[in-house]
Amino acid sequence: MTRLISIVLFLALWQIGARFLGPHYLPAPAAVIETMIAEARSGALAFNLGVTLARVFAGFSLAMVAGSALGVALGRLPWLDRLVDPWVVILLNTPALVIIMFAYVWGGLNEVSALMAIALNKLPNAVVTLREGARALDPALDEMAQAFAFPRWRRWRHVVAPQLAPFFAAAARGGLALVWKIVLVVELLGRPNGVGFKMNEAFQLFDLRLLLAYAAPFVALMMLAETFVLRPAEKAANWRLRHDA
């Protein structure tokens, strides 16, 4: 309920700000919605939003899968960790822009380079979180599984995975917010479609109505994903939240 009031308050401030600054600096919500409807009628809004969401989803999945695998490996193998850790730190501190530019220069202005750039930006974050999870695995339960001769799959599914799940969920939640911002930059720099591309177009024309017409639905979609998919998933992934007395 408070969240709803907060959103209404935000829209009210926007309206007041628009009246104050004038349409060249901040278009009113109604004007933005008008542009949004026009873009939706032409099909451009759905198309670009769809393309961007597909990139978010693909880059995010790629980074989560590869990052989790590498993170768990680093958490379990100290020698590998000592070897790879500096690379992870370097990658973690390299500006997203630099990674994107290198990806485009090396791989060309294509979809594969774009996805690599997105995934590489999110990767170190997932690695660090899952490494923490793998380090926190309880050796006592590991011994129990060994004593009772749990086969590999049962050990993974019932002993290891439940301990890693909260870390995976935390990485996913932090990751989405990061990935969708990076996707826009990737599109702005080297893709002929998507929300980022449209925003660049709007910026060239100083068309803030168009800019906001694309920004607003995109932000709304990400907020919905966060509230109705990622947060419940995080709760479900954490056995402590489910049934600890």
């Binding site: 006592a140 339960l141 011994e143 129990m144 004593a147 009772f148 001769a149 439940p162 056995w239 489910r242």
Partner: peptide, 30 residues
């Protein structure tokens, strides 16, 4: 139990179907 292999010596035959109760219960909490 074969949980500690860092020793010199041998346990023969290697036990099959082993049941173990540790000092702590070590149940899977989830």
């Amino acid at each position: 139990a074969g949980l500690d292999r860092a020793f010199s010596g041998a346990v023969t035959p290697a036990p099959r179907r082993l049941g173990m109760v540790f000092q702590e219960p070590r149940l899977l909490p989830w």
